[in-house]
Design a protein around this nucleic acid. Structure first.
Lengths: 331, 331
DNA sequence: TTTAGCACTTGTGAATAATAAGTGCTAAAG
DNA sequence: CTTTAGCACTTATTATTCACAAGTGCTAAA
């Protein structure tokens, strides 16, 4: 249905449009395909009828449709080797052994945004194969304490809680001992139910004000369990793209970036590097999101790059794969 | 030099311009001042010559200059009572005793941005009257440990560190004991020098691999000492203001908000609520920053509201003062 | 199947004109 | 001395027109 030359024409149009952000006319492809503009036009017409190309108005050149990008990404795109210069930058992340994981991730974001000029984001969530290693309840004043939760992967969370009544020091120590004895080694996603069904019934026997303390810890822990961290880099980069030269579009995208639900849309579900074009991104029709999941030391992280639909797909995919592989090797 | 009617004209122009964002013409003030437009024009001319008013072009109405806003803020503005509706929202922060401080601060930001439609930001920095209450070094793998620092105000910071060589468990415990014995109660801004001049010389006598461990803790601690937290709310709000209808301005301000140096510009130095108009803000000529310092439980925080120069000064100042007072009462 | 040729469409940018808002100035009135 | 009416003048804004460039679709011939 779609011949070889047509495939190549589609490929050329997508790549040219990615480079210039301008509709591509038939004449500009003549030399490359060694035929007349009329021939190219016939093929373009065909590609348009099949839904791979679009026009902005009746006599404009062609631009890729979402379907066109999708076809390009699935069948035509060639992975792009990372340039020497870029590789040099990337290696600063992984050659430096001093850098611990979270710094390496931050540095990765920085370099992605620097190289691609797109927006990058990482979100992490403590995942199931963290086990609780230690719990601490530290009194601060007579009515506040800090609860600290540490996992065997070295993730630390803390929360300051107001106690609703004054509690004796000894009680706090006792509670802390019980919690440690019963919880150490428990996978964090089982802690909640263990707290409720095993510990709550028992703790009353040993501790007087157990409800206050239990609630305090419960609150601290649930804070931990649901905690998500989101880090952005180069949020303003997307505005550099010429497609966002319209004020309303800019405002729109900026508010999207601010809103909380972005997080859900960005969260990766797949270990591979996946590409979501326009509507598929569920974020904004004018952007493409390329994302992947990374599993590191028991934390599930998602790294995503957000750019215009005419994103440099090959480059970004290669770079994300490189970073994913190297982070996982390091972790 | 500047008569009573002129003061009132300036006041009216500033307030009208704040409301509408449109230059104010002489006719529109006739009824209020019961005189002809020519009279108003004479006064306007005078105010312009003194530098309080500006024109966008030779035949436009007048808008306040920065000096005009400054005069308004210093001598003409009346504090605006918080409306019943807004007061209701504000009280949800302070009537809820469950809310601990950091949640109350976050909630405050949210409500400020909601009520004013400007951008709000808070930055905090652990300050001098935190004393170190506890240090923990927790081994995670053979080559990593987590250092945890807790202050007597309940601030907890942690950092995962890679050890450059394998270290014995006992050594870690010993180091941790020494650090605790020597550091507990020390004001955090004295910890650094104490570490270097008192502890480093001694620790070698007791611990074999002391350098590795010392460096690990030193790194963790210095991370803590310089840690600043910055929280934004309603970053996209500023774009709702009609003065940012130009794409370049929008891009400009968005990048400013992204950049790191904003933090320095925002940091408050004064306990009062202070207003920085345009250039005074050192941030962007087109914005006003209203900010104040809050001292809470040994943490110095700055709360700031960023909006266009034609910000609703009275409203914002009153609201910030209210929030500051109530947070400090709570803290 | 490819190509040359041509009529046709649309975006872009410049030039023009009409309108609305508002000023400065002058001269007279209070 | 202050206020006012009147008027010429300036500028932003918006719409209209025009010419040009880019690119298409279609037809008919190669």
């Amino acid at each position: 249905m779609i011949g070889d030359r047509q495939k190549n024409i589609l490929k050329s149009i997508v790549e040219e449009y990615i480079k210039t952000a301008r509709p591509v006319g038939s004449k500009s492809l003549c030399k490359k395909f060694k035929c007349s503009s009329a021939t190219i036009r016939n093929d373009m017409l065909n590609l348009e009828e099949l839904g791979y190309l679009e026009k902005q108005h009746i006599s404009s050149g062609r631009i890729p449709s979402e379907k066109g990008y999708r076809y390009y990404v699935d069948y035509l795109m060639e992975p792009k080797k990372i340039s020497g210069e870029d590789m040099l930058k990337l290696q600063t992340i992984f050659s430096n052994n001093e850098l611990n994981l979270s710094s390496a991730i931050e540095k990765s974001l920085e370099i992605i945004s620097d190289i691609t000029n797109y927006t990058s984001v990482v979100l992490g969530k403590a995942s199931s194969d963290n086990n609780l290693q230690k719990v601490e309840l530290i009194p601060i004043t007579e009515e506040t304490l800090v609860a600290i939760v540490i996992t065997d992967k070295g993730i630390v969370e803390n929360k300051q809680v107001n106690l609703s009544e004054r509690v004796d020091m000894g009680e706090i120590t006792k509670t802390s001992e019980i919690l440690n004895k019963m919880l150490v080694g428990t996978p964090i996603d089982e802690v909640s139910s263990k707290l409720e069904f095993e510990i709550k019934p028992i703790i009353g026997n040993y501790v007087k004000n157990y409800e206050v303390l239990y609630n305090a810890f419960y609150e601290a822990f649930s804070n931990f369990a649901t905690k998500e961290s989101v880090k952005w880099r180069g949020k303003a980069n997307i505005l550099k793209q010429p497609e966002f030269s319209n004020v309303d579009d800019v405002k729109n995208i900026v508010s999207k970036f601010e809103s909380k639900e972005v997080v859900n849309k960005i969260e990766g579900t797949d270990d591979e590097v996946k590409i979501y074009i326009g509507k598929e991104s569920e974020l904004d029709d004018n952007v493409t999101v390329i994302k992947t999941k990374i599993r590191l030391n028991g934390e599930d992280m998602s790294i995503a790059v957000i750019g215009p639909k005419r994103m440099e797909y090959g480059k970004v995919v290669t770079m994300l794969e490189y970073i994913k592989d190297n982070l996982e090797k390091k972790g």
